[in-house]
Design a protein around this nucleic acid. Structure first.
Lengths: 252, 252
DNA sequence: TAATTATTGTCTATTTTGTAGACAATATTG
DNA sequence: CAATATTGTCTACAAAATAGACAATAATTA
């Protein structure tokens, strides 16, 4: 297992990624269970190489865990309390993993590197969950999607990081059209509405939701989707211009 | 002159502060002229002590330059391009300051510390300009207020940092009532309007501006202000609850 | 094959909010 | 005390958000 301890990374600076997906009408977050004894769960994260933009570091982390690049990614907050240390978490980890000698010379370096106070830059990402096969790194025992409203206890301040990410996502949805990054390429109006409802955790009026989305003039209507249900078939829609949608202003 | 080069700061992490003030109907930013030959101008900035919250580091920087604490302060963006180095700026500085031997052992350490790539956390602050006496540190030759729309060329990416700060301020004004932090405790409606106009760099309709502000129900009306002008005396207003105003939602 | 059902797409009426125009109130000046 | 410049507020109008209603239609069932 490679634990970074070298000068090739910027010291005491980390990246934490809140990767949002959407499935079964639920907003989800990708969470890793660490490859140690004890049930340590954490956000995917990483460090920044000396010659790497912080945005690229976040993208690299994302690519590692999801296999896809060109993901929508937004830096949303820096977590920089002095008390923000891995110390407690690591001590607990060492207690539960006595087989790992953390006092040897080499591991001592790692321990020192890791137990320093870290400033962490929070990024959130929006992915089409169907395009993602969550991938473990050698630090992960497993990695899985968790409902954002039913998250387990995560290490350090990672629960707080998710809260802040969700808050930022909501604010930015009003300004951009990011949400469609969470859906597959084509979708019905109902699916779009259910997505918005799960993000904002509240319901919208069907008639007015549809009007508002269509008035924005960013969707193109495709053929009908025959669902097999005993009712009128809904149209499928697709974003007219994806790149533009991530930037264009105003909604909700 | 003390240039930090020790382990007491987090390495390669800096804080840059965009300190907004308002005077003569102009939005201003506090800019330092560095204490070297050559006209190097920069935002007030600093570094983060090992045992210091990043917010506290920003506040410390602010206190140093303005003398006041309890300033409204907001973290708005992290500037983290790999190419973000002091190198070019420092080489130019050394060229123009040959009297300073930067190849001696001690200065070499400083040079090494400084020329590494830095990730910088941007904060913006809003201050009542009348309460501030801009103060030099030993790094500054002088420090002065500059009109935000007529900034000189600043070092590295500091012009870009100001742009981004202004953009964030505008977005946040819509959500909070921060603007009043830039005025003295009491002010007329006209003064408030002129402030908003200088922040957004556009005009507002007088009647509707007044209505909107008053409808928010955050101001209390005080006695009239007799200006000596040959017209109806305007009322003075004051924020009902300052702490609340910085948090409360919606406006413009 | 026509009635039934569940849902979709859209229209209109209503309410709320935003904008523009108008005017009375008033502190000073001449 | 009229003239002037500005302030505070009101109303009319326009635009946007919300709520209610209903026709269209894909499958099912009689």
């Amino acid at each position: 297992m490679h634990i970074p301890s070298e000068q090739d990374f910027i010291q005491q600076l980390s990246i934490d990624c809140v990767i949002f997906g959407y499935e079964d009408k639920k907003l989800k977050v990708l969470v890793s269970t660490l490859n140690f004894n004890g049930n340590f769960q954490a956000l995917p994260g990483g460090f920044v190489y000396q010659n790497e933009d912080i945005d690229d570091a976040a993208n690299r982390t994302l690519k590692e865990r999801t296999g896809i690049s060109e993901i929508y990614l937004d830096q949303f907050f820096v977590f920089g309390k002095a008390a923000r240390k891995n110390q407690n978490f690591l001590d607990e980890l060492i207690r539960l993993n006595p087989q790992m000698p953390f006092d040897g010379k080499q591991n001592k370096d790692q321990y020192d590197w890791f137990t320093k106070r870290f400033v962490s830059i929070g990024y959130y990402a929006l992915v089409d969950i169907k395009k993602v096969i969550p991938m473990k790194t050698d630090l992960d025992k497993s990695i899985q999607w968790c409902n954002v409203y039913e998250l387990p206890d995560l290490i350090i301040d990672h629960n707080e990081i998710v809260s802040k990410a969700l808050e930022s996502l909501r604010l930015n949805l009003d300004k951009k059209l990011l949400a469609f990054n969470l859906l597959s390429e084509t979708f019905t109006m109902k699916e779009a509405q259910e997505l918005y409802e799960s993000i904002f955790n509240k319901t919208f009026a069907r008639n007015n939701f549809q009007k508002k989305i269509l008035d924005m003039d960013v969707l193109e209507r495709l053929e009908k989707k025959f669902t097999g249900a005993a009712n009128k078939a809904p149209f499928l829609y697709r974003i007219k211009d994806k790149a533009k949608a991530d930037e264009s202003p105003k909604m909700m």
